[in-house]
Nucleic acid binder design. Structure first.
Lengths: 208, 208
DNA sequence: CTACTAACCTATCAGTGATAGGATGACGCA
DNA sequence: TGCGTCATCCTATCACTGATAGGTTAGTAG
């Protein structure tokens, strides 16, 4: 763990490269030990720099976690955009989006947690945290995709906002529980996901 | 905040009473400052005892939060049991359970978070945490209620376990998002809840 | 060769959860 | 009444956390 520093082998890096380096190590540590269970010293040690050096790149530990979340959600946004414009039948596009979302949440557990499962602001009138924006943008893409499906008649009628939020909630619920309670007796997880997706599709899709 | 200690007014209490006292203050503080944002010293100060004295009642801070969760979930279990045996038409019992669940989650936000939203064990093979059991028992009651409804023909067919977990996920999803992201532009929250409940009922209820 | 700047360091801070070991007060029993 | 016993509660302290202050070093432009 101290290999780098002991041998003084760590090269000085341009700020941007070092920043990516930090994010990569932090991401790996968060997955192993959780966010609260990973200290800034652990991250710095893994990178091979001193703990205060982290603060040249991120103002706080929270900023670091938010940056990590932002990076991951940029890829979710890509994923959703790709599915929206993909050459697949509109009828199966909703399923692709839902399955893509679930896969992303389980794969990028740490990032997903940061964006949607951490303790939020305590008072509703608090300032909106702009670092959370990437998650919100991904959701906006999701919503727009639904709006399009609705226009094409593949989504049930009703307020698109309500539908998007409700569908989001139903999908998020499974992701959140699987991430928060992996020790729950879920049975076969893939089967559970299939079951849930099927019910969601039946509930939100237009079967006309 | 230091009123008690400064005046030496705090009486010695029998262990059980002091324990309840601690839980009550901790619950209030958790709601205001979050779990991570509430230190053991804040709790001790509010109660009017020294910080180490907490450890006579709870082995760790986590044990305290778990106890708080357990206490709250006992009341959720009561609520569900009450609804199950209540003199209401079987057709509306599902809706009552879902709405009761949502109301509980939003009212007892801190307890709900502890049971279902905190960082769980990192490795699936880790020992099952018995302090989480109350939440699991409440879920078991929920599941049994669904099994009964299914027998009576008010729930769609299929694996009761899958149905319970899926319905749980859908309901939990909304609760979790509302708790984690109160700053999201939800619009009118009550309307959102109504909308979601309606969709859930249509998806899981047997309309025969 | 010098001056500047970004990268990086050591030393230290207040605050955290948790532990060790001593003081105090109530209650049962002689 | 006096004496032990034991639960309650304390002060002092631990290792560790996130964060800050201020000095050092390496690369680079002139």
């Amino acid at each position: 763990m101290v290999a780098h520093r002991a041998t003084g082998v760590v090269p000085r890096l341009k700020s941007a490269a070092r920043r990516e380096d930090i994010l990569n190590h932090a991401s790996r540590l968060f997955l192993s030990y959780g966010i609260a269970g990973t200290s800034t010293r652990m991250i710095a040690n893994a990178v091979g720099i001193s703990q205060p050096s982290l603060y040249a790149h991120f103002a706080t530990k929270e900023a670091l976690t938010n940056a990590l979340s932002a990076r991951a959600f940029a890829s979710l946004e890509d994923l959703i955009a790709k599915i929206r414009s993909a050459d697949i039948p509109a009828a199966t596009r909703l399923e692709a989006m839902i399955r893509g979302y679930i896969r992303f949440a389980l794969d990028q557990g740490a990032a997903y947690r940061i964006a949607f499962m951490l303790e939020g602001p305590m008072h509703e009138d608090e300032a909106f945290n702009p670092d959370i924006l990437p998650g919100m943008q991904a959701f906006a893409g999701f919503r727009d995709g639904l709006a399009l499906l609705q226009q094409e008649g593949h989504l049930r009628e009703g307020s698109t906002d309500h539908l998007a939020q409700s569908l989001w909630a139903s999908t998020h619920g499974l992701c959140a529980l699987l991430l928060a309670r992996p020790d729950f007796p879920w049975g076969e997880i893939e089967a559970m996901i299939d079951f849930h997706v099927e019910i969601i599709l039946a509930a939100y899709q237009n079967k006309a």
